[in-house]
C-alpha cells in the first residue's frame, strides 16, 4: 500500500444486485431443501408402503393358514360330531343289543360292524336262542344265521352272523 490512507471497503456488486443474489440464493437453497424433504418423505412413504405390502402379504398368509386351520377344525368338529353321534348310536345299539339278549343266553363275544353283527355265546338249549334272541335279530337284520355246537360242559355254543344291506 503506497497511499497515505486505506481505501474504503467496497462491495463487488451494488446493493440491489446483492439483494437479488441473496434472494435467488435463498430461493435455490429453499428449493433444494424442499426437494430433499420431498425426496426423503417419498422414500419414507415408499419404504412404509413396502413394509405395509409385506405386512399385508404376511397377514394374507396368516389368514390363509387360519382358514385352513378353521377348515381342519370344522372337519375335526364334524368328525367328532359324527363319531359322537356314531358312538351314541353304537351305545344305543349295544344297549338295545344287550336288552335283546335274554337271561338264558350268555354272550362270550360281540363283533359289531356298520352293517353286520357277530355274536358268540352259549345257552342251555337251542330253543332259548331260537325263541328269545333270533326273532329280534331277524327283525333288525336282513340276513341272520346261526351255527351251534356243544361244548364240554354240555352247553350249546353258537355263532350268529347277522347282516344288513348297505344303504
Amino acid at each position: 500500500m503506497h497511499s497515505f490512507i486505506k481505501p474504503r471497503k467496497k462491495r463487488l456488486i451494488d446493493e440491489m444486485s446483492s439483494l437479488w443474489i441473496i434472494f435467488i440464493a435463498l430461493m435455490s437453497i429453499g428449493l433444494v431443501g424442499f426437494g430433499v424433504y420431498v425426496n426423503y418423505k417419498s422414500s419414507f412413504y415408499i419404504k412404509m408402503l413396502e413394509e405395509g405390502e409385506k405386512k399385508h402379504q404376511a397377514l394374507d398368509k396368516k389368514v390363509k393358514d387360519l382358514k385352513s386351520d378353521i377348515q381342519i377344525f370344522s372337519m375335526q368338529k364334524e368328525l367328532s360330531y359324527e363319531v359322537s353321534s356314531s358312538n351314541l348310536i353304537l351305545k344305543d345299539s349295544i344297549k338295545n343289543l344287550f336288552d335283546l339278549v335274554p337271561n338264558q343266553v350268555t354272550l362270550t363275544k360281540v363283533v359289531m360292524e356298520k352293517y353286520a353283527l357277530e355274536l358268540q355265546g352259549y345257552t342251555r338249549s337251542k330253543e332259548s336262542y331260537r325263541l328269545l334272541l333270533e326273532p329280534p335279530l331277524k327283525s333288525i337284520f336282513d340276513e341272520s344265521r346261526v351255527e351251534f355246537s356243544i361244548n364240554k360242559k354240555g352247553f350249546f355254543q353258537f355263532i350268529s352272523h347277522n347282516k344288513m344291506e348297505e344303504k
Binding site: H2, S3, F4, I5, P7, R8
Partner: peptide, 23 residues
Amino acid sequence: ASVIDINWADKVFKKVGLDFIFS
C-alpha cells in the same frame, strides 16, 4: 505527508470520500 495535510484532504473531500492519497 503531515497528518494535518492528510486530514485537510479528507475534510475537503468529505462529501465524496477518498480512497487513496498519493504523494
